[in-house]
Computed example of a mutant assay.
Amino acid sequence: MASMSRAALVSGAFVELADALVGEYDVLDLLRTLVDQCVVLLDASAAGILLADSHGNLQVLASTSEESHIVDVLQREAGAGPCVDAYRSGNVVTLSDIEAEEARYPDFRVAALSQGFHSVHAIPLRFRPRTIGSLSLFRREKGVLSDEDAIIGQALADVATISLLHERAARESATVNEQLQRALNSRVFIEQAKGVIAERNSINMDEAFIRLREHARSHQEPMHTSAANVIDSRIII
């Protein structure tokens, strides 16, 4: 492959990944784009991604083939394998000859060889101290990736990692903002209800708040619900 052609393919891969991030992007689409590009660009026969859920349990999120999917599922279920170790350690794990790994990864060895894979390069999906999964590059030949392929593979993994962390942060931020808005809305109801109670009973606002809170507690309902009922004259406090 000519160097300019390789450069164009690499550039195109990053453009495609960037396109997958536009708007409310689909995480699964992003990950499938990543593994597909790994097989196109690198000396890899198949690729797969294990991603940790909120409890730290690995799940198979994307695979380029049924064979790589089977091997990744086995690693996840057994809790052992180079891709699991890449996630746990945060370091690249390379097996140049899977057949020679009977002592270290007996179950993985059997599964990988049965699917025709003889070497694997596992890259952690890591950004700074945080690791969220791993990218598996399976090969049908023995040996290791070239230095250039390893660098490109790491760059693709880094782009996916940063994108996934950004998506999670945005989702968490949206949840926090929603909770904050609910709190602000509730506060408006409560202030209005305090005014109604204070005027009706000729008491100050602090005493009105105490009465509103006592009513909410005695009826085992959120205070903003009691406040809304006061405002709508459904209850009198």
Rank of each mutant, 00 (worst) to 15 (best):
A2V: 13
S5E: 15
S5T: 12
R6W: 08
L9R: 08
S11N: 02
A13Y: 06
A18N: 10
L21W: 01
L21P: 02
G23N: 01
Y25P: 14
L28M: 05
L28C: 06
D29T: 03
L30G: 04
R32H: 04
R32W: 15
R32D: 06
T33A: 15
T33N: 13
T33S: 14
L34G: 04
D36K: 05
Q37S: 10
Q37H: 09
C38S: 05
C38I: 07
V40R: 14
L41S: 03
L42I: 01
S45V: 01
A47E: 13
I49H: 03
H55E: 12
S63G: 13
V71F: 07
D72R: 14
D72F: 00
V73A: 11
L74R: 08
E77P: 14
A80P: 07
P82S: 04
A86H: 05
Y87M: 02
G90Y: 02
T94Y: 08
S96Y: 15
A100F: 09
E101F: 01
A103P: 09
A103G: 11
R104N: 11
R104D: 11
Y105C: 04
Y105E: 10
P106D: 07
F108L: 06
V110N: 03
A111D: 05
A112V: 00
L113P: 00
S114F: 02
Q115S: 08
Q115V: 00
Q115W: 04
F117N: 05
V120R: 11
I123C: 01
I123S: 09
P124C: 09
F127L: 05
T131M: 01
L137Y: 15
R139Y: 07
R140L: 05
D149W: 08
I151M: 13
I152M: 01
G153I: 12
A160W: 00
T161H: 09
E167K: 13
R171K: 13
A174C: 00
T175G: 15
E178W: 13
E178T: 15
Q179L: 07
R182D: 04
N185H: 02
N185E: 11
S186V: 10
V188R: 14
I190E: 10
A198K: 12
N204P: 04
N204M: 02
D206G: 15
D206H: 14
R213F: 13
E214S: 13
E214I: 12
H215T: 01
S218P: 09
P222H: 00
H224E: 14
H224D: 04
A227S: 00
A227L: 04
V230G: 04
S233K: 10
I236L: 09
